[in-house]
Simulated assay, not measured.
Amino acid sequence: MNKNKQIIGLENAKICFYLPTPPTLEANWSHTAPLAVQNLIKINGNHWRKILTIMAKIAVANTNWKRYRDELLLKQDESILIDSVQLNPNASVHIICGQLSAQKLNLNSALFKPITSDSSSSHVSKHTSQAIYLCPYLDYRQFPNQQIDILRAALTLPPLS
């Protein structure tokens, strides 16, 4: 992890996830290591397994999210920006996870509209002119599979179910 920018993964990744707090990482941990995701989960436990699983479910082009998760930060095109005050200029898709991340980025909420008209089924919104998505924190209670599929549809990806 680049400690100055608090980025996990490739700085020029296409999709950037924004989270409020970092995982615990060993001093020699690298996202390029063959078992990087497995080691991150081993050190941080179930909470970060859930975060990485939801990230994989959102970003995978097909439906094999389990395999995708295991290589998420190594071979894929996603990164995580921690406690950021600005969007990653290299990313083309920005997924802001939770209110704390949105507040830190100081985004104008008036520029975001719900992705679906069914307000009871989605807490996911999109910027009116950019590929910036506001969503719940990456936890199954806040961001269940139904909402993941809504976001996937907005990203023009097939549903997982």
Rank of each mutant, 00 (worst) to 15 (best):
N2R: 11
K3M: 15
K3I: 13
N4K: 11
N4M: 13
K5V: 13
K5Y: 14
A13L: 08
A13M: 09
K14E: 15
K14M: 06
C16W: 05
T24E: 15
E26V: 01
W29V: 04
W29S: 00
H31F: 13
H31P: 08
T32L: 13
T32V: 08
A33F: 04
A33S: 09
L35Y: 09
V37P: 02
R49I: 00
I54Q: 08
A56V: 10
K57G: 03
I58K: 04
N62W: 12
T63Q: 10
N64A: 12
N64V: 12
Y68K: 06
E71H: 10
L73F: 12
Q76N: 15
Q76R: 14
I80P: 09
Q86N: 14
L87C: 07
N90M: 08
V93N: 07
H94G: 03
H94D: 05
I95Y: 05
I96T: 00
G98V: 02
G98C: 00
Q103D: 13
N106T: 03
N106I: 00
L107Q: 07
A110R: 13
K113A: 11
P114I: 01
T116P: 01
S120D: 14
S121G: 11
S122A: 14
S125C: 06
Q130E: 15
Q130I: 00
A131K: 07
I132N: 00
L134D: 01
C135V: 04
L138S: 03
L138P: 03
L138F: 09
F143M: 03
P144N: 13
Q147M: 15
A153T: 12
A154N: 09
L155C: 07
L155K: 05
T156E: 05
P158N: 06
L160I: 07
S161D: 08
S161V: 08
S161Q: 09
